[in-house]
Simulated assay, not measured.
Amino acid sequence: MKKTLCFDFGNSRYKCGVMEAGFFKKEIILDGSSEEINHILEVEKPEKTILSSVVRHDEKIEEILAAGSSFHKVTYQSKMDISVPSGQEKTVGSDRWAMLAGAMNLFPKQHNLIIGLGSCITFNFINKFNQFLGGSISPGLNMRLKSLQHYTAQLPLVEPDWNFPLIGYDTRTNILSGVIGGMSKEIDGIVDEYKVKYNKFNVLLTGGDLPFFVPHIKNKIFADPYLIYKGLYFISEKNA
């Protein structure tokens, strides 16, 4: 069965999604070493590989992928059938291209708002004509939690947790309610603003921090932690 390895090198983690015949099979968390990439290629034996990277990674990795498979690296020049009316396609990160491609192929000819919950929160709106109109970027969950510790004298660094009360009863639950509860209201509020402008659109949530927010979002959403891999697969099919 045809196998594609979809590599996602982000600010927080290096990951790989294994796709077989277009279906997601598993996720592999990576350390980012070229030796590990070699090992994965030997074990998985993919026909195609594709890389989305928003960080400076070992350039040898691309050489390894190109030598062991039909390889493509996502850039604004990749074939995706997505246009950018603002003319700012060079500034769009490869992870955002992957999310857009995933949404566009899962919900074709529909307005889609994709919310990425990773190092940053990104709102990405692609209309039914496959035009990426833009969106917004704000600090992500861990960035906000770390900033509370960094910029105060006494507040601790709190581990994320979806389970917290509205009214925090100690420092930890006060921070969780303020940060995760506040971010959830921020997300709902921005979605509501889009509803004023567009009558009908899909809201897709994805990213590593997805589980912390799903219980608190009031708007109807499609939660897909593996959307970026599906998008990378679709891009790979057009390019690799």
Rank of each mutant, 00 (worst) to 15 (best):
S33L: 05
P225L: 02
S70H: 03
E89I: 06
K3Y: 03
I114V: 15
V54M: 01
S52K: 01
L205H: 06
G178Y: 04
L41E: 12
M183T: 10
D170C: 09
G17D: 09
V203E: 04
G181T: 08
M104W: 00
S52P: 06
M99A: 15
I221E: 10
E63Y: 09
K48W: 12
H57V: 10
A103G: 15
I28Y: 01
S83M: 04
E237P: 05
E159P: 06
E42W: 03
R144W: 01
E20N: 07
N219Q: 13
E27L: 12
M19E: 03
K3L: 11
K45D: 12
N127E: 14
L65A: 05
A103E: 00
F129L: 12
C16T: 14
S78V: 07
L41M: 15
G32Q: 11
F212M: 14
P211N: 09
L145K: 07
F213R: 02
K230V: 05
Q154P: 04
E59G: 07
L51P: 07
R96E: 02
L166F: 13
I50Y: 08
E44R: 01
V203D: 09
K185C: 11
K109Y: 09
H216T: 05
L157G: 00
M183A: 09
K26V: 00
Q110H: 14
G182Y: 11
V74K: 06
